[in-house]
């Protein structure tokens, strides 16, 4: 860690401008909320958006006699989306209006995208429409929870389109979302895309979570491309971290961590491997919220492995013990290198 003067000098930043900015941020009447507040507000917006979708469905069905979504409901969805953005542009102080507008934007985008799907019977069109609406929101760049909901909608529809188009192997395509999300975190574009990047990082674990609980467990002996993508992502992240560390024992510790994580990726189901990439990204960037998400996902995926239908309990027990042994060996190596506190 470093002080502001040397931080600016090392990165060739305008120290006066940075100092001014940080002082303004610290004195601002409303500071950006912490991640857990955004999570809560996001859940609230999601619930309100679902209720709003139910309202539009009921209204269309009874007042306008529309039984099935189509172009008409897509137009209504788009109007709701624009109306929500308009309220946000005009609202400065009202928290109620903000929450209502976020739900309106999310519900409008969902209604428009799903209506286009019903109209065209093509999931790709729905995914493209949702992606376009998410892009508009990223360009406007106002609310993190809104961007996350819209990006999740677009990614969810994209994943559904891929699954619909491919009889097998869709998981390997979905796995590509994780390194893309990590890249957006490591080299962010000028517009803040962290909520969309988070949605991309969560795509694979949630795909595994949904398919595993609904119809098609994604673990088992196959899915090698997905595992290799996760392994490659972990090795690249570890290389980046090691490159940024001066101490030789730190480099050795990063090598131990990377090798253990890569070995685990070969053994674990893709959902668990993707969660491991999130953990590695958190470690590489020094990002506590991602670390908490990664740990919670790993806690979910280890017991879920018990329900793998492709392997016997005996095979699973050997795999789990091998993963455990690889990780404990990495811990022992870390201790020897002096990088880990006892």
């Amino acid at each position: 860690m470093t002080d502001l003067a040397s931080f600016c000098a090392t990165l060739k930043l305008d120290e006066a401008a940075v100092r001014r900015l940080l002082e303004t941020e610290a004195g601002a009447p409303v500071r950006p909320p912490p991640w857990y507040v955004l999570l809560l507000l996001g859940v609230g917006a999601w619930i309100t958006a679902l209720l709003m979708i139910a309202f539009v469905a009921v209204f269309l069905g009874f007042a306008l006699n529309v039984d099935e979504p189509g172009l008409g409901s897509a137009v209504i969805g788009a109007a709701m989306f624009l109306c929500g953005l308009f309220i946000q542009a005009k609202t400065k102080e009202s928290v109620f209006a903000e929450q209502f507008a976020i739900a309106l934007v999310a519900a409008g985008a969902a209604i428009a995208a799903f209506s286009l799907w019903f109209e065209s019977e093509n999931l790709w069109i729905a995914a493209a429409a949702a992606a376009a609406l998410a892009a508009i929101d990223i360009w406007r760049n106002r609310y993190a929870q809104q961007q996350f909901l819209l990006a999740s909608l677009a990614i969810g529809l994209g994943v559904a389109a891929v699954s619909d188009a491919m009889a097998t192997g869709s998981v390997d395509i979905v796995a590509l979302a994780v390194p893309f999300g990590a890249w957006l975190y490591l080299r962010p574009p000028p517009k803040d895309m962290r909520p969309a990047a988070t949605a991309l990082l969560l795509a694979m674990p949630f795909y595994a979570l949904v398919t595993d609980s609904l119809f098609d467990p994604t673990y088992g002996s196959g899915r090698w491309p997905a595992r290799i993508i996760a392994m490659a992502a972990i090795l690249v992240l570890a290389w980046l971290r090691a490159r940024g560390s001066a101490a030789p024992n730190a480099r050795l510790s990063h090598l131990c961590i990377a090798l253990a994580a890569a070995a685990v990726c070969l053994l674990l189901p893709p959902g668990g491997s993707a969660a491991l990439v999130i953990l590695m990204l958190a470690f590489t960037l020094g990002h506590w919220p991602l670390a908490i998400v990664g740990v919670l996902l790993e806690i979910y995926f280890v017991p879920r492995f018990y329900y793998d239908l492709d392997a016997s309990l005996l095979s699973k027990s050997w795999i789990l013990m091998a993963v455990g042994a690889a990780l404990l060996a990495a811990y022992a190596a870390l201790r020897r290198s002096g990088a880990a506190a006892p």
């Binding site: 790993e298 280890v302 017991p303 492995f305 018990y306 309990l313 005996l314 699973k316 027990s317 050997w318 795999i319 789990l320 013990m321 091998a322 993963v323 455990g324 042994a325 690889a326 990780l327 404990l328 990495a330 811990y331």
Partner: peptide, 13 residues
């Protein structure tokens, strides 16, 4: 995670 996986393996066994 290492201890967790190892113990989950023993439980499955």
């Amino acid at each position: 995670l290492g201890a967790g996986h190892l113990l989950a393996g023993i439980l499955s066994f």
